[in-house]
Design a protein around this nucleic acid. Structure first.
Ligand SMILES: [Mn+2]
Ligand SMILES: [Mn+2]
Ligand SMILES: [Zn+2]
Ligand SMILES: [Zn+2]
Lengths: 135, 135
DNA sequence: TCCTAAATGAGAATAATTCTTATCAAAGAT
DNA sequence: ATCTTTGATAAGAATTATTCTCATTTAGGA
């Protein structure tokens, strides 16, 4: 099952209109902020409380339904793509694009299998690729 | 010259006590927030306006004296280490450690020299290494 | 259908950052 | 050494992002 409802129930979360629309928003906006999500939902006339959005986002992160992504800004962005991937960050604009590359992943994992980092146990390797999008 | 004063004048910035103490703080705190810097400076009795700290930090970033680093939080952290490096992020705590690895850099640059990313020109490759510090 | 724990809405509170404006001071010019 | 000018700083207000509180509502199992 890949419906929004099943994603919630798989995690033992109650199905509410708010949660469904937040999840829908995350899947339809590129690495959104909480505010992006609120605006998206309110376009469709469904009102939603700001506090609810933050609360639900935190719940989703805890349950592993979404992830936070890292940025240099003081605003948190979320990611609905759970499969391991990297990101292309625009140095000009605010655009962040997903970058999936299994070959790269193998190289990285292989490298750190050989080369241990003293006193540190690696859980996840994510490459931030900064640069310019051509048009 | 490696003095704090020379770092400022090399960038054409006026030498002020505030700028010197902010730069000193950055070099003596591990990836600090603006608030970390303010607290550090106020320990030594020198008072400083919060707005000044933010202003100076932004100036330093613009001039390339320091860099912002990425986090999943809504607070900005700064980095005084200009040489290219990666970061170890603790999944437990707030700790972020520098990770310098030229061999890794060569592998990454080599990989993307061969494998172009369509419609994207790479400027910087930074690996985020998340995991646990063993004590 | 009922019940209850969990979720939500509304608004206050807090935290992080930016903005405004009056005053101050660095540093080049005299 | 003093003057002058331009940029820097202090203080506090304003804005933005997030969290908290608590009264009300609702999902979903009994
Ligand atoms: Mn905040
Ligand atoms: Mn903010
Ligand atoms: Zn992504
Ligand atoms: Zn660093």
């Amino acid at each position: 099952m890949f419906s929004l409802k099943s994603k919630l129930s798989e995690k033992g979360l109650k199905i509410t209109p708010q949660r469904l629309s937040i999840l829908d928003a995350i899947y339809n906006i590129n690495h959104p902020t909480a505010d992006d999500i609120i605006k998206h939902i309110r376009q469709k006339h469904s009102n939603i409380a700001i506090g609810t959005v933050y609360k639900v986002l935190e719940t989703f992160v805890q349950k592993g339904l979404i992830k936070r992504i890292t940025t240099e800004k003081d605003v948190i962005r979320y990611d609905g793509l759970l499969r391991h991937h990297h990101h292309l960050y625009s140095t000009d604009t605010v655009l962040i694009k997903d970058y999936i590359d299994e070959e790269l992943d193998k190289i990285l994992v292989g490298y750190f299998k050989k080369k241990q980092i003293h006193g540190f146990e690696i859980e996840e390797l994510t490459l931030q690729i900064k640069g310019k999008f051509n048009n």
